[in-house]
């Protein structure tokens, strides 16, 4: 457990968070390598199914990163995403997973710092929560 390195999937909107991740890169802002980014055209495209599948396959944490409030390139994708995340969080609780393993964050394209910061905080949080009970059992 001490050497537990969580695997975290970050669904990032092309127009904001994905760009912010690139920005964190060009500014060489380190964050934990546990975070693996999957690019999507809009946080509103991230299906509840994508999220639960990630957990089913063994993700220790998942987050969806969309644009700041009012900044969505497609009007309201980030708002829809936030609602969806709240819904899936409840489902995770039903399954017996801590809902804290899933999170919605808002990051604008320019916020390289914030991207790195969010990646670090979420990784730390998941590290404290420990390995996903699903992965732990699956590998038994």
């Amino acid at each position: 457990m001490e050497n537990f390195e969580p695997v975290i999937v970050a669904f990032c909107c092309h127009y904001c968070a994905y760009t912010a991740a690139d920005m964190a890169g060009s500014q060489r802002l380190p964050y934990p390598s546990n975070v693996k980014i999957i690019r999507v055209p809009c946080s509103g495209q991230v299906d509840s199914l994508h999220i639960v599948k990630a957990f089913e396959k063994g993700a220790d944490g998942v987050y969806v990163a969309g644009c700041l409030d009012g900044d969505c390139h497609f009007k309201n994708g980030n708002v829809k995403a936030a609602k969806r995340i709240a819904y899936v969080q409840k489902y995770l609780e039903e399954i017996g997973l801590e809902s804290e393993r899933l999170e919605m964050v808002n990051i604008s394209a320019g916020m390289g710092h914030r991207f790195a910061e969010v990646a670090s905080t979420i990784t730390e949080k998941i590290r404290k929560l420990g390995p996903s009970p699903i992965k732990a059992s699956a590998s038994l």
Binding site: L49, F55, G96, L97, I134, S137
Partner: peptide, 21 residues
């Protein structure tokens, strides 16, 4: 179809959690 997928995943996870599949 969507809810079928969601439930399948949820049941699977619940099972895995209890150590079976």
């Amino acid at each position: 179809r969507k809810e079928v997928g969601m439930l399948a995943s949820g049941l699977q996870m619940a099972r895995l959690k209890s150590g079976t599949s």
